[in-house]
Design a protein around this nucleic acid. Structure first.
Ligand SMILES: [Mn+2]
Ligand SMILES: [Mn+2]
Ligand SMILES: [Zn+2]
Ligand SMILES: [Zn+2]
Lengths: 164, 164
DNA sequence: CATCAGATTAAAATAATTCTAAACTTGACA
DNA sequence: TGTCAAGTTTAGAATTATTTTAATCTGATG
């Protein structure tokens, strides 16, 4: 067994953080940031991508499914088809703006928090909460199979209501 | 942050191990073991449950989906409907004979290895391989949210073909 | 402004899984 | 050993999340 301490989540985004500037995330933010993010990712800033990016990145760290984001959009009077929401989430993911989290074999969650971190998963409610990367230590790992490279180490702490 | 070292996989089976006796797993095994396992789990030993249990537990540790087990059954000339395979897998799971692993949000894997352990996941092929529990150390964990109890800690090491 | 590659979308298709309801089995027990 | 209720199996329909299709738009560029 090798004592290599492997960092969770191999690929890190290009140093971009959701709200990188002074003021705390407010409502009517300038579009320029989001615009730059999309451009930086090589994605055309279309009406729906801009709106979805705003919903995704303007309000701190979020864990959500396509359906959730779609509902969010409707509430915000943003007209986007569910297909576009799926497309956009996958594009953002490929572009390194979102993480995909596997905790439930029935739905796919996306995470706007791109920093190294892990998760608590509340089985009952289907909610996720972050565990900062420095609060978990995957100390030892066996040698990775030959010819393979670790793309990521995911730690999921499944919790449920404590009972008697 | 609490320094509680939490053991992965909370609930452990009743000390039963797949091949608990001397001889290495062979083909034409006595049914008695399987029969006892089902009885012990409070499940009626029906023809299909016996056959599926044999396929599942007679050949060492396995990670499989319902479709895979169904295919296995067909190959072995065991006639079982896919619905029964699903039912059986869930029943075995509830009875503590199988583990459910979440690594792919599109299919559900079941694991015949009930010991404390973690997994390598080969994204390309969808294959899983075990990492013995004592070869991973989840050293530190933040305090579990109030009123919650850890039901399990899953570590998934995602690997892919090493490239240039 | 014309052009067109790329984007959006309604609707159909797919895939994994669950449900339904009818037709069997199993395990008592007389 | 025959009977029967409870538990099981199954074909097929239904459900759900997601992807695909193909037609229609729209953003960028000259
Ligand atoms: Mn995906
Ligand atoms: Mn299940
Ligand atoms: Zn997260
Ligand atoms: Zn395993």
């Amino acid at each position: 067994m090798t004592r290599t301490s492997i960092t969770p989540s191999g690929i890190t985004p290009s140093g971009i953080t959701p709200s990188d500037d002074a003021a705390p995330a407010a409502e009517g933010r300038p579009f320029s940031q989001i615009l730059d993010r999309l451009r930086g990712a090589g994605l055309r800033p279309t009406r729906q991508r801009m709106a979805l990016a705003k919903l995704l990145f303007d309000g701190g760290d979020r864990h959500l499914t396509a359906e959730m984001l779609h509902a969010d959009a409707q509430s915000a009077n943003v007209r986007v088809s569910l297909a576009t929401v799926y497309n956009t989430l996958h594009q953002f993911h490929r572009a390194g703006l979102l993480r995909e989290i596997v905790v439930d074999s029935q739905r796919t969650y996306f995470d706007t928090n791109m920093s190294d971190h892990h998760h608590f998963y509340f089985d009952e409610t289907g909610e996720l909460s972050d565990i900062p990367g420095d609060q978990v230590e995957v100390a030892a790992l066996p040698p990775v199979p030959d010819g393979m490279a670790v793309s990521r180490v995911d730690v999921v702490v499944r919790v449920r209501p404590a009972d008697a």
